[in-house]
Amino acid sequence: MSDREGHIGPGSSDDDLSLPKATVAKMINELLPSDVTCAKETRDLVIECCVEFIHLISSEANEICEQESKKTIAPEHIIGALKRLGFDSFTTEVEDVLKDHKQQQKDREKKADKIKDSGLTPEELQAKQEELFALSRAKFAQPQQQQQQLPQPQT
């Protein structure tokens, strides 16, 4: 059910929605030349615009989803929503990101299969993991021990 009056779902409103300010600030700073700064009010406006854009695309994707008698918004619905709303120029990049995401999922599954296919029992895997943790702790503790052994400056 699509609702463009600002109600996202039960118990939520647009006032509840935002994006992490630090993340948005970091993205903005990475995109701007080093000699240009962004005012706090500008960052807040960018966040509001992003939230509105997400709401617009989600609402349109929801309508497409309902027209197809589906209960789950799929990536294809988002791409369709972008096209319907005149954001055709975004679809190629969105499709590329989707392809990368699917590849990352496959890679994660291969890694899980590799563990499963290792021939080791869960107990052996646990022991190997504990061994790796112990090595990591030893490496981490080594610089701290060296610091403690250094002579302390006298006052």
Rank of each mutant, 00 (worst) to 15 (best):
Q142S: 06
P75C: 09
M1N: 11
K139I: 08
P33Y: 03
R108L: 12
S2E: 14
K70A: 07
Q146Y: 08
I79P: 00
C38S: 04
R137G: 05
E52H: 03
P20F: 06
E131M: 11
S34Q: 12
L125T: 12
K110G: 02
Q146G: 04
E41P: 00
R108A: 09
A127M: 09
G119A: 08
S59M: 08
A39C: 09
L56F: 04
E41M: 05
E48R: 04
Q126M: 10
E93M: 11
A141H: 06
E41N: 03
Q145E: 14
G86H: 05
A138G: 06
P153C: 09
A138R: 11
T121W: 15
D88L: 03
L85H: 04
Q104E: 15
K71Y: 07
D96W: 03
V24L: 10
P151W: 06
E95F: 10
E131P: 02
K102E: 12
V46G: 00
R137S: 10
Q67L: 15
C65Q: 00
G80P: 01
A81D: 02
A74L: 10
K71H: 11
T37A: 05
I78C: 00
T42S: 11
D3G: 04
P10G: 12
L19G: 04
A141Y: 03
I78H: 00
Q67I: 09
S18F: 11
L150R: 13
K114V: 08
Q142L: 13
